[in-house]
Design a protein around this nucleic acid. Structure first.
Length: 548
RNA sequence: GCGAGUGUAGUGUAGCGGUAGCACAGAAGCUUCCCAAGCUUCUAACCCGGGUUCGAAUCCCGGCACUCGCACCA
């Protein structure tokens, strides 16, 4: 599995990506994308965005990375704010302190002192070797940003999704109150990983492309049918391996949710288009015990790389969890509505009996009315509990109902951009059989430059024409790069290595007949075209070089 | 975060108490030269901070980073 091509060595040497702040020693889990890498990454992002918009009812959000504490309390992240670990002194095995306490049927409170006390008092031993435990240690999983003494801190978001959920009503209106629709967000997330490692695989600050699909639970269907024109490698939670189309996966009940099935296909198409090796992609269903607290079903897309199978995308069924929690915690109406057959419904209307309340409570009437409006059964006035029963007027009414509220469910395809870039490089660095030179065979539309412009050798007349060609292509909106240093073979090799798919060479024939050669990265073959048709030829080559 | 190992030009490495060499890459030039050719010249490094020593890249301590295991991984 381990290839003899060292991705990190090339990435560092050629400025694709490299450790950030390295002149000061760096900091683990932080990387810079250099000149080539940031363009490749941006191209991948743009293709994803373009494909998402092509779905139809999809819009974009850009929300802050700094997130209010209240939002993360509602989302449940705040409770997982700390990781409590405890280590066996003897065998050095580490456990989650809350798991240890829970496994013995003891009450779990997520508090360092509490867990420490429980483990010490109950004399809990290491389940592996029976040794004594060291003290409980905590690890913060979210980065906290203090605002000042009397204000709750902010947190760097651990995922971009919450920004979308809290704005559900905004989008619901934008889509004129019709489901389904989806909102995408591209941005950075932050997690204080205990040990960030393996280059781009586990970062403290990472790029995500997230999509939240909002659906009516009674009509859980995305606007497009699951694909039926290609087969995907699925691994179920019972380790069954299947090669079937997304449509089959849905119809056979392998994937119960239509949008979940659909987006496995979407992800697969996207991977193929940006140039991942389709034979090194699989979709693996989370085991029941590995599912997150909110999800009933999750499928991870995994790519086979030097690091083994790595997770590059998670497609999760989040149910009504997210919007439901924000309704609960914010007290705001984040419901969607569906049209139903108009029908009469009996209801009981409640109204405070203002006269009686004023009579009995005088200037405390306000408190009582407030309590009634909050739905309380009783209220404390001057330390006495008073039943509100007799101050409420109840009326039986009949209303016509033609719509009902519900909490939308969410399906979330969430793409880890850095890992996708990692896999993309891993799948595309190739070695030429004849000479062992490395080239990066990524699709033209992902490549950092469409073409390199090279005078055959450094003579003033050739350089002048090459420069004209270069500026002409730039004006035509093509991303090209000019290079006249070293031999022509060296220049070809230099840009092969970073994936530039075409080389335009200006030679002595160019001076005679205004033609240049286009040399192909993957085959090293050349064709001759006139300078006038160069732009349109390159565009055509980029287009036909598209995968899927 | 724990344990083990490793940090020398952009990259890969040599040197292991007397202040750095090689290869490739890079720059300038020569070469009528289409696949990293050759020649000349040049640029460029001891992870950071302390200590020991007359003298430290080399020995010791601390930090940082990387690799591998353990643990963690919404």
């Amino acid at each position: 599995m381990k290839s003899d091509i060292d991705q990190e060595e090339i990435a560092k040497r050629r400025g694709i990506y490299f450790p950030a702040f390295s002149i000061y020693g760096g900091s683990s889990g932080l990387f810079d994308y250099g000149p080539y890498g940031s363009i490749i990454k941006e191209n991948v992002q743009n293709i994803w965005k373009e494909m998402m918009f092509a779905e139809g009812p999809v819009t974009l959000l850009d929300s802050p990375a700094l997130t209010l504490q209240a939002v993360l309390k509602a989302s449940g992240h705040y409770d997982r704010f700390f990781d409590y670990s405890v280590q066996c002194k003897a065998c050095k095995t580490k456990f989650r302190a809350d798991d240890i306490v829970e496994s013995l049927g003891l009450k779990v409170v997520l508090d360092q002192d509490y867990l420490n006390k429980v483990i010490k008092e109950n004399n809990i031993k290491c389940p592996k070797c029976g040794g004594d435990f060291d003290d409980v240690k905590i690890h913060k999983l979210m980065f906290q940003v203090d605002q000042g003494e009397n204000v709750d801190p902010l947190f760097l978001r651990p995922e971009t999704a919450q920004g979308i959920f809290v704005n559900f009503k905004e989008f619901y209106r934008f889509f004129r109150e019709k489901l389904p629709f989806a909102v995408i967000q591209l941005g950075r997330g932050y997690r204080n990983e205990i040990s960030p490692r393996r280059g781009l695989y586990r970062l403290r600050e990472f790029n995500m492309m997230e999509c939240e699909v909002f659906l009516d639970p009674l009509d859980e269907k995305w606007v497009n049918e699951p694909y039926n024109d290609f087969k995907i490698h699925y691994v179920t939670n019972t380790d069954e391996e299947l090669f079937i189309t997304p449509k089959e996966a849905y119809e056979k009940g392998i994937i119960k949710s239509q949008p979940l099935a659909y987006f496995t296909g979407f992800a697969f198409k996207f991977y193929k288009r940006i140039g991942l090796d389709e034979n090194k992609i699989r979709f693996r269903q989370h085991k029941k015990e590995d599912l997150s607290h909110y999800s009933s079903d999750t499928w991870d897309a995994e790519a086979l790389t030097d690091l083994g199978w790595i997770e590059i995308t998670g497609i999760a069924h989040r149910g009504t969890y997210d919007v439901g929690r924000h309704i609960e915690y914010s007290g705001k109406d984040l419901y969607a509505q569906r049209i139903v057959e108009p029908h009469k419904e009996k209801r009981i209307e409640i109204e405070p009996n203002f006269k009686e309340i004023k009579k009995d409570f005088g200037d405390k009437a306000g408190e009582v009315i407030k309590a009634i409006n909050n739905g309380s059964k009783s209220v404390f006035i001057d330390n006495a509990e008073i039943s509100l029963e007799k101050y409420i007027i109840k009326r039986d009414v009949e209303v016509t109902v033609d719509r009902e509220s519900f909490v939308p469910i969410v399906v979330e395809p969430s793409f880890g951009l850095d890992r996708i870039v990692y896999a993309l490089l891993d799948h595309n660095f190739s070695k030429r059989e004849e000479n062992g030179y490395i080239y990066l065979k990524i699709p033209p539309e992902v490549a950092p430059f469409v073409a390199g412009i090279y005078p055959l050798f450094p003579k003033e007349d050739l350089e002048r024409v090459a420069n004209d060609v270069y500026h002409r292509l730039l004006k035509d909106g093509l991303r090209v790069i000019y290079d006249d240093s070293g031999s022509i073979g060296k220049r070809y090799a230099r840009y092969d290595e970073v994936g530039v798919p075409f080389g335009i060479t200006i030679d002595y024939d160019t001076l005679k007949d205004n033609t240049v050669t286009i040399r192909f990265r993957d085959t090293t073959e050349q064709i001759r075209v006139s300078i006038d048709e160069l732009s349109s030829k390159l565009r055509e080559l980029v287009w036909t070089g598209r995968k899927s």
